[in-house]
Design a protein around this nucleic acid. Structure first.
Length: 402
RNA sequence: GGGCAGGUGGCGGAGUGGUCAAUCGCAACAGACUGUAAAUCUGUCGCCUUCGGGCUACGUAGGUUCGAACCCUACCCUGCCCA
């Protein structure tokens, strides 16, 4: 594949959605312009079964790199993942088994398929267990001698835990080491990652310099945060997972604070940012801009048709408070059931106590009628619609057999 | 190895013999409101219940007591200080 040296595209690659470029933008631009094939990688720890939009941002960047004709590697941290990242204090360190890692990986593959085809467009998948599991203790010690405890402690996460008298496990210090060694093992020219990964990535930069006398470049991608640096939602509640349905993804994007509109367009779409800014300045309703953003995001991961359907659905359910276009169908056998049992049986709630609470608070509707009495016996009719809260709907189907 | 302080609900953190299913904050859920699933306000927030109550839970295992998250013993785990 030919190396693309179009300055415009390279500029776009180095600036759109990018927070940090090390050692300098000029350095990396020069490399990219040289026409030489470069090797850059992005690491993911396969700790959970699902990827979310945050992962997607970096993966899209990796794809961009591949599209420029370079060698892009998606590194699965199966080794690091197996050791487990003990971020909380006493929660039993979850050590992933080989089986789980494998399962997670195949899930990722599926989830990423719409945006990235493995073995295509230059993106290659590697596993770091390939080299990390072979390191001898002696080699590990050698690697460790490149770093000081003080350097590690400089990391804000560790610093915070020191101040709070919370445990820091020794092997946590080895994390950056392992990640750094990945660069050495693959002998890459650069590394890509979320800007929050900078510390680990820099460890790799140091190692590359020390062991290979190579200047590894680093591209730190912007995180999905608003202007004040607040991560979207306090947790990752509205960080849509790639496995979410088109409707859910659409809704989650709509729930983002307005401050995320521009960053969202910047890092998740190819939309013309100037135009978006203009629309904002003109005082256009942010909701409409967000509808466009949500549409683009869903389009990225589903078809355009599905994206449009999700938008229609959202407008119906939330703006006009109507029922969704399509809802899940649930079969029931018993013709007459108590409302609580019905809610539990259809898996809308997890316990009777919860069901009762919802009913008492007026959060349960059957065919648009609020059910207030938790002792009510419901006579089930075909195609009856049960709604819990604002956004959970199911369509009942009477099963004819006993 | 020694001394000290701790281990409580999804998380943080009160409680130190009965009135504790456990104050409070965060997260979550429902309702009102809103351009939005944001913000704000209100309510809920272990499980089961014939709504009387029952059951399971405060690191683990035993014990004392009419009664234990709280007292005793052993064990496991964490932090701090000393060596």
């Amino acid at each position: 594949m030919k190396i693309i040296t179009d300055p415009k595209r390279i500029d776009e690659f180095l600036s759109r959605g990018v927070e940090t470029v090390l050692p300098s933008k000029e350095f990396v631009r020069e490399k990219l312009m040289s026409g030489k094939k470069l090797k850059m990688y992005l690491g993911i720890d396969p700790t959970g079964p699902n990827l979310h939009l945050g992962h997607l941002v970096t993966i899209l960047k990796l794809k961009e790199f591949a599209d420029l004709g370079h060698e892009a590697i998606l590194l699965m941290g199966d080794f690091t993942g197996m050791i487990g990242d003990p971020t909380d204090k006493s929660a039993a360190r979850k050590q992933l088994t080989k089986k789980e890692v494998k399962k997670n990986l195949s899930g990722y593959k599926k989830q990423l398929a719409p945006v990235l085809k493995f073995g295509w467009g230059g993106v290659r998948v590697e596993f770091n267990s390939k080299w990390l599991s072979k390191l001898k203790f002696e080699e590990v010690v050698n690697l460790a001698s490149n770093f000081t405890v003080q350097q590690m402690l400089a990391r804000d996460m560790f610093d915070k835990r020191m101040k709070e008298n919370k445990p820091i496990y020794l092997h946590e210090f080895l994390y950056p080491l392992m990640q750094g060694y990945d660069c050495v093992a693959m002998d890459v020219d650069g590394e890509l990652g979320g800007n929050d990964q900078l510390f680990n990535i820099l460890a790799g930069r140091d190692l590359m310099k020390a062991l290979k006398n190579k200047e590894k470049f680093v591209i730190g991608v912007k995180l999905l945060t608003d202007a004040s640096g607040q991560k979207m939602g306090k947790t990752e509640g509205n960080m849509a997972a790639l496995t979410d349905s088109a409707n859910d993804k659409f809704g989650k994007v709509m729930s983002w604070p307005d401050g995320l509109i521009l960053p969202g367009f910047e890092i998740l779409t190819k939309a013309d940012l100037g135009k978006i800014k203009k629309r904002m300045e003109k005082g256009e309703n942010p909701r409409d801009l967000k509808l466009d953003l949500a549409l683009e995001v869903v389009k990225l991961l589903h078809s355009e048709k599905e994206a449009k359907k999700a938008r229609e659905n959202f407008i119906k359910v939330f703006s006009e408070k109507e029922k969704p276009v399509e809802m899940e169908k649930v079969r029931v056998k018993t013709r007459v059931q108590n409302i609580l049992n019905l809610l539990v049986n259809t898996k809308l709630v997890s316990s009777k106590a919860e069901a009762r609470r919802l009913v008492e608070q007026g959060g349960v509707k059957i065919d648009d009628e609020v059910i207030k009495d938790w002792q009510a016996e419901i006579e089930i009719k075909n195609r009856m619609v049960i709604q819990v809260g604002k956004r959970r709907f199911i369509n009942l189907e009477l099963s004819e057999k006993i």
